[in-house]
Amino acid sequence: MVNAIETNGLTRKFGERVAVDKLDLAIPQGKVFGFLGPNGAGKTTTVRMLAALIAPTAGSATVNGHEVGREDTAIRRSVGILTETPGLYDRLTAHQNLVFFAQLYEVPEKRAIGRADYYLRALGLEERRNDKVGGFSKGMRQKLALARAVMHEPAVVFLDEPTAGLDPEASRTVRQFVKELRSEGRTIFLTTHNLPEADELCDLIGVFQIRLLQIGTPAHLRSLLFGRGTVIKTEGDASRWASVATALPFVRQATAQDGILSVTLDDPDAQNPALVHALVAAGASIRYVEPMAHSLEDVYLELLDEKNMG
């Protein structure tokens, strides 16, 4: 598969301070990549480098096959960016804002007008088409900025915190729009603090704090950090069944809390029958069995903890 974004040892320093350290990424075309990290981790700096807004101090990167630092204008033509703040012209109407930016991206006027109408409709802003942006709510501004990012039909879209500070309805519209962009085959580079959102939208996730701590699919990251497992709800106190489970040779770990037995296994699909059989044989009365689910938040915090502990 062709990579839309590739970086090799991408580094950016501001004076002595390292903002991004030896970042290696390979993001295939058409995927949604979630770039997670705390405030000040260097996410915006990374996006700015990849969008050819600022130059790397060391390392290299290609976006849509164009090399950062050598083919910056070509990169800017082929990427769309939703910046941290919407940055819209308050005295212009929603439509004027979109058409102006589309034309800066070299979209001819007639086509720009058509696309502006299309995206205003897609994001539920068609009734505010001719209203000045100064009177727009935060959610409306964010949606408009999102439309602006794709007015020139870019192959790669950088979205910096697209749902930050939005109400649930506006957030859902934005998420739906991101899914539509993915279904059109665009590559999306999404920086977010909203972990359930990343879990919902992203094919690939990178946890980042100045350097890349881990990268993989959400499922891969979960299994990498926590292994896979099974949750068993038993009648009464579950703690006495933990020792039964631990005695089984294929069980890596078993803990009990509040009537719930959590068992870590290498291959739950194959090992669950034997586990359940052993528990029932020992006298356990089982109410339900389900796969153990770690949230992306657990994964994220675990990775940052590991990093902070050295």
Partner: peptide
């Protein structure tokens, strides 16, 4: 102040 410079600079305008 309206933070429109970054989106403008992100376009192919020199």
């Amino acid at each position: 102040t309206s933070r429109t410079l970054e989106p403008v600079l992100a376009t192919p305008v020199s």
